[in-house]
Design a protein around this nucleic acid. Structure first.
Lengths: 129, 129, 129, 129
DNA sequence: GTGGTCTAGACCACG
DNA sequence: GTGGTCTAGACCACT
């Protein structure tokens, strides 16, 4: 389920944090669902369990998951509005960065919009597969 | 001119690479323009000259700049089409990532589009300042 | 195993690159073999680890080695033909340079050949020891 | 007449030294011939006069040239035998290096000889042009 | 243990 | 002045 990019400069544990964060916000996991075990994920990703453990700790620090001794990690409760807000803020920030860099490269409003729409369609096609 | 984010997990030298790359693609610098000196940038950003040197070396490896001994670093020639192509590929990839994460969080086509347009407008307002 | 020449005008890190390159092409190391660690080589050669790291980075750029996080550097895969081709090109270039300089010094075909053969034999004797 | 390689790691002044050394040993210049002026060479190579001056100084240190105030640099006297010996030593050393690297890459006597002969012929063809 | 990043600061080559 | 190399040594990410 998870995917990491070995050659990215971003530490693996932060890539895992981000992936799981998105899954939680996107309700792939619901409140109080049990997450896959650290060992399970480590085996899937062919990564050291310590690395996954570090990611889980980070998620706990951010209040997105909690641990039950001997049972594993579970999705923490977030209110609907809170969740929606976080998603929107997140995307707003990400879109902002891309648009900013597009503007730095000299593209205008219409060009940017066109590129976005092309990317959106191409994503939907991939998703459809 | 350049800005770096100290707390980002992305290494400083790669942040510098990315900033300069965007400037070159966006024609802030034209072909054969001299870039600011390593020492200059290092002083501006308050980082070690070696860190900037590493960024420059990376840019040279990617063929975006070249060096003249004792004179400094200069913007390499890229054909117009090549440049346009790189910009588009770059944005396509970046938009793709954001859209993908939006879909993972359960947003639909229209919601994503709406968020994008909001972000675009808010960027233009900032730019206008 | 490695040797460097302190007084050469060629930077130490490039000398290391060349030595390891020859070892890989000459199959002293096979595909996916682990190279000695940066720290190990640095200690052996009595140079700074950063210098060796720079050499390794260069080898990675040239596609001769790859890294696994936390494990070390490994010999990348090269096809047999590719390897043979590189070796031949390399030697052709090197011989060409020496022959060219010999010609510039006024030596004729036969003299050059004689010198080469003498050198070849003397190398074989050394090798035999 | 001279050629330098901008992208070589060997300093330009040492490249110039080597070129002129070969010319002197190869009798392109005879004893007491006047060498081209520093400014002349600097202009030809599009290099800073300081760089050429440094090369000349190095040649003087090695006893290959001498200066006459206000007149320029001249080829120093070398005995015939001395000259022949230097040439041979030089080539022997260079061939030795190439052969050594060939052996390190696992090539045998006959393969090396074949490659050498091919290179020799291809050099003669170039020279013939 | 591994490599990766970064700093502080030295010295060199080149213009 | 420019970039290039190198050292000494720190801290981080990962196995």
């Amino acid at each position: 389920m998870l995917r990491i990019n070995e050659s990215s400069p971003i530490p693996i544990y932060l890539q895992i944090v981000e992936e799981i964060r998105l899954m939680i916000l996107g309700k792939t996991f619901a409140t109080d669902d049990r997450l896959p075990s650290i060992r399970q994920i480590a085996a899937d990703l062919k990564v050291n369990p310590n690395t996954v453990a570090k990611a889980f700790q980070e998620l706990e620090n951010r209040g997105l998951i909690y641990f039950r001794r001997g049972q594993g990690a579970f999705v923490a409760k977030i209110s609907e509005e809170d969740q929606k807000m976080r998603i929107i803020e997140d995307l707003n920030r990400k879109f902002g960065q891309v648009i900013k860099s597009a503007m730095e490269m000299g593209l205008g409003h219409d060009e940017i919009k066109k590129l976005f729409e092309k990317a959106l369609i191409s994503c939907e096609i991939k998703e459809g597969n």
